[in-house]
Structure formats: C-alpha cells, structure tokens
Design a binder for these strands. Structure first.
Length: 867
RNA sequence: GGAGGUUUAGCUCAGUUGGGAGAGCAUCUGCCUUACAAGCAGAGGGUCGGGGGUUCAAGUCCCUCAACCUCCACCA
C-alpha cells in the first residue's frame, strides 16, 4: 500500500496523469454499446491563440458533466474540435505575413491558405496542450475542425439545399462593411457603441425659388452619394418645396425634394438627406421612389471619384475638409457636439460603413419560425439552464433578419456558386458545373458561423448516415456562454431543426463571463486577463476547476478571486491528508467487498448515514447542473463530517474491538468521496483512488457510489456524544480553562437517569475533550441541556458562578424568545389548519425540546441564585 | 425605445416549490491534540437596497421607487 506524501503537491499529482488516461483509453466513446449514450460536443475554440479563463470555465463544466455521466454508467462521447474562425484567423495570418513584409496578394490565394493551415496546426497543438493541462477528458479519435473535408461536405450540402429550397439568395443590398477587414459582416458582428460625434447643419438652397432650408447629418462625406432631400408629406414647413430641387452643398448638384412618411418631423430639422447606397433606411426610400443608388466610397472607405477633389481621401478626412469648404462657401449653419451610436466591427473595431453590395443571404424567418414552433413542445424543445435564457433565445428568433453569409475572405468554406462567364447564369451545386471552363466560382467564403451552426451533427458525420450520428445525435447537452446565444446557439437550433428534424441538443447550460477581482470584463486592452496555465502552475488544475465550477450560479458572471482558488487548494490538501490517515490505517488483507455491515458501530453507521444523505443531495443537484450546491455539500461533508468528526472519533475505535468496522468505513467513505469529487478534481482523486485501491486501473470508469442501506441504529447516541464534546469545549472557553484542563462530568437522559457511557465513548471524550466521563459523581453540579439529555459538570472545577449565570441567562433569554415564537405559531388557528401537517408537527416537537431545555436552564439558574 | 440581470456579514458570493439568515476569505481568542499550523478548538459580525401589498408565515411571491450592470433595436 502506497503511503501518500505529507503534503499535497499538485504538480506531482498532475504530472503524467492525462497521458495515462489517454493510454488506457478511458475517454474513448463507443467501447461498450450496451450502455446508454451521452454526448457533449465541445464549443470549438478559435485557432487564433491561447485559451483563456473563460475557455477553462466552459471546458471544466463540460468535463464535470461528462465525467459524472461516465461514473453513472453512460457511454460518454465528449467530442473535441476547433473553429477556423474566418476573419479572426485570417487577420492574424495577414499580420504575421505583414511582419515579414509580405502581403497576401503577393503570394496569392492558394499559398495564403497553405500558410493559414500551418498556422492552424500550430495553434491546434497549443489548444490540445491546454485541454490536457486542464484534464479535459476528450475523445481525440473523433476530433473535428470546422474547415475539414467532412464539414466542408456538410456545409456545401446545407448551402445547396437551402438555395434549392429558396432559403438562400443573392442580392444587392445594404450590408455592414468592415473597411479594415474589407469584408461584409452580419448584423450581430457589428457592435453599436455610443461615441462622441458631431451633427452638422448645412444650408440647402432651393433651385426654383429663393428659399433655403437646413439639413442635418452626422456623415457629411456621404453627401456625394445623395440623390434627394426627403421631408414628411404632412410637414407644413416644407409642403411647398415638394417636387422642387435643392442644391447639394457638397457637389453643387441639384437633387429632388421628395416626400416620404419615413421622415420624423420632430427629429432634427425635419428635412433629411438621402444616401441610398450608404444607409439602409435611405435605401428603402430610394426603392420606393425608384431612385438611383450611387456609391461614393471605395472598399477601404476612401472616397471614390464621385467625391471629385476628395477622391482617394479617407472618409473622415474628407468629412473635415468638405465641412471646411462648405463653411467657406457660407452654407454651414452650425456644428453640434453629440453622442450617438456608431457601429464598429466586432473583430477589427473599424467604424462600419453601411454599403450597397451584392452578397449572399439566408432567409431566416421561415427557419426561425420552425424552431419557435417546436420550443412550445416540451418533448421537442431545447431546455435552457437557467430557463430565462430561453426568452433571450426566443426574442431574437422572433425578430430575426436575413443573415448575410458571404465574406470577402480567403480562409473559409468557399461558396459553391458558379457564374457563367458570358450569360452570368448562376449555378449552385455540390459538384462544379460540367462545363466548368465556362464558369468562374464565387470568390467569397462563408461566414464562420455558417459552419459552426452545423457543429453538433456535422461532427458526428452528417450528412452521411454514420453510426455515431445514429448513436449520439441529438446530443445531450450544450455548455456555452450567454454571449454567443445569437451567434451560435440559435443558429445551431435553426440548422439542426431544418436538416435533422430535431433539436441539436436537449439541454443548454449557459454560463456567464469571467471577470477580474474588481468585476471588470477580462480583456486584452486592460491587460487584466488571467492565464489558466499560470493558475495551474501555482495551485493546480484541480483547484482552478473546483473554483470555476462551484462559485457562481448558472448564467451569472464569475469574478476571479485568487483567495478562493487558494482556499480550494487548502480543501484539496485537507482531502489529501485525510486520505493519508486512511491509508496509514488500512490493513493489507481486508475483504471490503464481503464485510458484514451489521458489525459496524453506531459511529460508523452515523458517518455512513451522513454519506448517504450527501450522495442523495449531490446526485440530485448534479442532474440539475447546480454545481455550487454540490461543491458546498461536498466541502462540508469532507471537512466537517468526515475529517473533523468521523476521523477523530474513529481514532479510538481503531484501538478497540471495532477496528475492522472503522477500517471498512474509512475505506468505503473515502472511496465514495473520491468518486463524488472526481468530476471536479480529476487529478487528485485519481491519484488517491489508485493508492487506496491498488488493484484498480482508474477512477474515471469506476462505479458511482451507491447508498449503503444500514439497519436501524441509534443516531441519537452519536449526536449526543458530539454535543457532549462540543459543550465541554465551550465550557472551557467560557471559563477561561485551558483546552487541556480536565472536567469531570456525567450525562443524564431526559428522565434524569444517569447514562452509563460505553468504554469507547468514554475514551473518545477523554481524547477529544480531555475530560472524564463518570458514571457517578459527588458534589455540586452545573447543568446544561444537550441533545436528548443534560450535561452535568462538577461545578467546583469551573472558575466562578458569575460566568455561569451570565451564560445561562443568555441561554434562557434565547429559549424564551424561541418558545414565544413557537407558541405564537402553534396558537394561530390559521397556522394549524393551513400549514402542512409535517410543518406543524415539526414545530410542536421543537417546542417540546425548547421547553425541556428551558426547564433545565431555569432550574440551574434558580439553584445558583440560592447559593 | 424594448428585454434581462444585480443589490444578503468587512470582501467575494450561496440561499431551488414561502416555514427559525449561510459559506469561503478577513477579524478576535486559545492551542504543535501522534492525517493536516496552507492545521485544530472556540467567538464576534447582517432591521437580506427603500417603500407598499398578498399570506397564519416573505431574503424568497406581487407592485413601486432607487442604484449599478448587460443585451437587443435605433432617426438623418
């Protein structure tokens, strides 16, 4: 039998363990198909860099669930994979090339993709190392990548099918243009933030009359793309101008003054300039009035030739110079400082330019409606934990807009659309057109999230009808952050429903974001990010995992508090040392499997009954993903019930006739503890488990602890014993006695009969309270209530009567108020008649006990006063 | 404009069908008791953001106000 080191050393414990698990193959799914399948697919991290604390949290939660299910006897598939992360990765690769003085255009598309794949391989390696470091139990034989050949097949099929079903179309529309990444973005990739800006008021002269009026804008440079001025038809101020022409102060060209209901008379000056190619609302107006839609900017947000002398200038530079010129011409009325929402690119932070452009879109409404319909069916819906996120999910789907899916990038799934060189006819198909020489393929790739949306089923082999797909799909649970419900969760639901006719996962566990100790979001710019690998170095992966999983409620953000990780380390150290104690006392030859539990002492039965209760609570809450409750339950059971009480109590038993029972109990309870804690702290529990059970291969695939049925036993005896010890310790502190001081005492039951202590209990008290439990005693006794009886202490050993009176008076006061409260409740007829009977009975028995204790206290007080 | 979250001990947070306010850390006191001093044994500390209501009973349910935070939408 291995005796553990005197101190928990996380580095030593974790070293080599993961590799051993892989060698054993205990994370491999499908080994025993008689078991019920359980499946979680990992949210694929981007291959752009290191994993951060948020990933560590996310993966820990998944790993806890899958390890738990494995112990419960499921055939668990926890499927790993990564995301090609189109824009993000391409930006990184471009940056790397730029450092070498190379532009992507220098090397061309094909070569660029080669470099990108190399990048992917490098970062995939880093990510796997981090998974390993955190102990995440993945089945690497099934690892997937959102850009691998299989997924490409899935992506193409989805694109082609949706196209053929009329749910994907190509159109010329206003999209969000990122002028830095030079690609279109979807609406949710645009972050609206309130930025300081300016509102410019310009004077517009009317061509036909001497009138003039004022138009306000925040983007003067777009005036080069203006086609008209719009007013509300009901606006008395401008009615007479409708149909006339105004002079655009930017280019001095005349533009029509038209009327449209869209214009809000209350806002600004009530007269609005209209730039159809650079504003979605203006685009709508132009459509209604059949107007031109001239584009006045290049793709890099510099001005084009429409801007005349400003051609080639950056849009913001143009804004300034143009304003200055208009001012010089006397047409600038005023400039107001304002704060207004401005769209920024999620990836590059560039100010988004609404831009008229030909792109591919998914018609989302019919797809979303289908998901919403099934969300009303309890058997078909996705269950969110916590439930409130279902509302977020539903609301987004209810108000969904079409999804712009084409991206002007190279790194991604190339769109399977081909255009005839002469006729411009569009061909969309799984295979290129037969006369491919007459066609060119679309240059664009698909939004990264287009492939991520297929992740739960594409990773299992869809569209092929694979064994894995049949066995593990729909998956059991998705664990992810609330920040990607729209980006990812909703889209998986949509595509899953359309293509697999079911939900992609039954449960969806949502967690929050990690924050620093001040509650700030962890970000690169603040430099307040925590590297999980640093934490592992200092406290070990097990400490970090337990901290991450047991310190917040589902859906809530989590602050990184180092002291809490440290306290987890202490907890593990406690477990470590308790295990040491157990192992030091085990016997080489002991048949645990055939030990007759009828021989156990009441002390043994007491801890086993506590363990049973703990197993019950833990199991119930594991199934509800309430890991904080599980954590505190286990912390309390291990530290207080097992370490502070049972281990101390059993030390005496180990030197008695009850030795075998104590050994059996130590072994059994510790094994159960290890299994219950294993999902949270896999490394240390494995290490101890193997020491405790030398013939076992791993705890990973061991059996979840069962409730141990114990025959009737006297719970009260142990509860009373513990109360005796606690009371004696309190008495010593109250009376300024040294912990080592002896107190002579007897215990009486409620009928005033002296309890004759067992030999073991006598010894236990002597050890744990350093006091002598007598069978009879002479002299004046100080009496206080304990569980099921009275503790009678030789009062000559106490310092003085005053302290005792003080203590008892306080106690009397407390009991009086409790009795009052209880009497009031039980005297209330409404309570008696309306409250559940169990509650009433509980209250009645409480009252009986209060009264019993009160009598004891009162008697002793009266006695003291007489003296 | 719409939706949601938070407010409980000095700090960070639990508190799940309403039924006597909890943990960790910090603080105070005393202990090397042979698994553990990163430990052991004790202790102090909260009118559960304010105000109303429902109920026999409210930290918990309803209304309202306040502060902070997040998401969605957005008007030139």
């Amino acid at each position: 039998m291995k005796i553990l080191d005197t101190k928990y050393d996380h580095k030593k414990v974790e070293k080599g363990q993961y590799q051993r698990w892989l060698d054993i193959g205990c994370f491999k799914a499908g080994e025993d198909t008689s078991k019920e399948p359980y499946c979680i697919v990992i949210p694929p991290p981007n291959v752009t860099g290191k994993l951060h604390l948020g990933h560590a949290w996310d993966n820990t939660l998944q790993d806890i669930i899958t390890r738990y299910k494995r112990l419960k006897g499921y055939d668990v598939l926890y499927l790993p994979g990564m995301d090609h992360a189109g824009i993000a990765t391409q930006a990184k690769v471009e940056e790397k090339l730029r450092e070498q003085g190379i532009s992507k255009y220098d090397i061309g598309r094909e070569e660029f993709l080669k470099v990108s794949w190399q990048w992917k391989e490098e970062y995939a390696g880093h990510i796997r190392e981090q998974w390993e470091a955190m102990g995440v139990g993945l089945d690497y034989s099934r690892e997937r990548f959102t850009l691998d050949a299989g997924l490409n097949k899935a992506v193409n099929k989805v694109f082609v099918d949706l196209y053929n079903d009329g749910l994907i179309y190509r159109d010329y529309r206003i999209i969000n243009w990122d002028p830095v990444a030079k690609t279109a973005l979807s609406n949710i990739e645009v972050i609206h933030q309130d930025d300081p800006g300016k509102m410019y008021y310009f004077n517009y002269k009317v061509k036909e009359t001497d009138d003039s009026f004022t138009v306000a804008t925040t983007r003067p440079e777009t005036m080069f793309g203006d086609v008209c001025v719009v007013v509300n038809p009901k606006d008395e101020r401008y009615k007479h101008l409708i149909g006339l022409h105004a002079i655009n102060p930017a280019n001095h060209e005349e533009i029509k003054i038209i009327a449209d209901d869209y214009v809000d008379m209350e806002f600004g000056t009530g007269a609005m300039k209209c730039t159809p190619a650079h504003d979605p609302n203006d685009f709508e107006i132009a459509e209604r009035h059949n107007l031109e839609k001239p584009i006045c900017m290049n793709l890099d947000a510099t001005m084009n030739k429409l801007a005349k002398e400003y051609e080639g200038l950056d849009r913001f530079e143009c804004r300034e110079r143009l304003t200055k010129r208009i001012k010089e011409e006397g047409n600038l009325i005023k400039i107001e400082d304002i704060v207004h929402p401005v769209g920024h690119s999620e990836r590059t932070n560039a100010v988004i330019e609404p831009y008229l452009s030909m792109q591919w879109f998914v018609k989302m409404k019919p797809l979303a409606d289908e998901v919403l319909k099934y969300q009303e069916d309890p058997n078909e819906k996705i269950n969110f934990y916590p439930a409130r996120f279902e509302r977020t999910f539903n609301q987004w789907l209810e108000n969904i807009e079409d999804w712009c899916i084409s991206r002007q990038l190279w790194w991604g799934h190339r769109i399977p659309a081909y255009y005839h060189k002469e006729t411009n006819e569009v061909y969309v198909g799984l295979t290129p057109p037969k006369d491919i020489e007459n066609y060119v393929q679309d240059e664009d790739v698909l939004d990264t999230w287009f492939s991520s949306a297929l992740w739960p089923f594409s990773t299992l082999g869809w569209p092929e009808n694979t064994d894995d797909l049949n066995r593990y799909y729909p998956t059991s649970c998705m664990v992810t952050g609330y920040d990607i419900i729209f980006f990812w969760v909703a889209r998986m639901a949509v595509q899953g429903r359309y293509f697999t006719k079911t939900y992609p996962f039954k449960d969806c566990l949502i967690h929050g974001l990690t924050r620093d100790y001040q509650g700030r979001k962890m970000s690169k710019s603040l430099g307040n990010g925590i590297d999980p690998m640093d934490v592992k170095e200092q406290y070990g992966a097990d400490s970090l995992r337990f901290f991450l999983s047991t310190n917040s409620t589902p859906g809530q953000d989590l602050r990184y508090i180092e002291e809490k990780v440290e306290s987890t380390w202490n907890f593990i150290n406690k477990l470590w040392n308790a295990s040491r104690f157990v192992m030091l006392n085990l016997l080489e030859e002991f048949d645990y499997d055939n030990y007759d539990i009828a021989n156990l002492s009441n002390i043994d039965k007491w801890i086993i009954s506590k363990l049973n209760k703990t197993i019950e609570i833990v199991t119930e809450n594991m199934d509800k993903y309430e890991f904080t409750i599980v954590g505190s339950e286990l912390y309390n059971f291990v530290w207080n019930d097992f370490c502070s009480w049972y281990i101390e109590l059993c030390k005496t038993e180990l030197n008695s006739d009850y030795k075998d029972g104590a050994i059996y109990t130590l072994h059994t309870v510790l094994n159960a503890i290890l299994k219950l804690l294993h999902p949270f702290m896999p490394f240390v529990t494995e290490k101890i488990y193997l020491g405790l059970n030398p013939s076992e291969e791993t705890i990973v695939t061991s059996k979840y602890p069962k409730i141990i049925e114990i025959k009737e036993f006297d719970l009260n005896e142990i509860e009373q014993l513990i109360d005796v010890i606690k009371s004696l310790r309190e008495i010593k502190v109250e009376n300024d006695l040294k912990p080592s001081a002896n107190i002579d005492f007897i215990v009486k039951d409620n009928d005033d009969n002296i309890i004759n202590p067992s030999l073991v209990n006598k010894e236990i008290v002597s050890k744990m309270a350093r006091s002598k439990w007598a069978s009879s005693i002479d002299g004046e006794l100080s009496i206080r209530p304990i569980i099921n009886g009275k503790l009678c202490v030789l009062s000559s050993q106490l310092i003085d009567k005053e302290t005792e009176i003080l203590k008892l008076s306080k106690e009397k006061e407390r009991l009086e108020s409790e009795i009052n409260r209880s009497n009031k409740m039980l005297g209330n007829e409404n309570f008696i008649s309306k409250a559940p009977k169990a509650k009433v009975d509980e209250e009645k028995s409480k009252l009986v006990n209060y009264k019993r204790e009160y009598d004891i206290v009162l008697n002793r007080l009266n006695e003291l006063k007489k003296l």
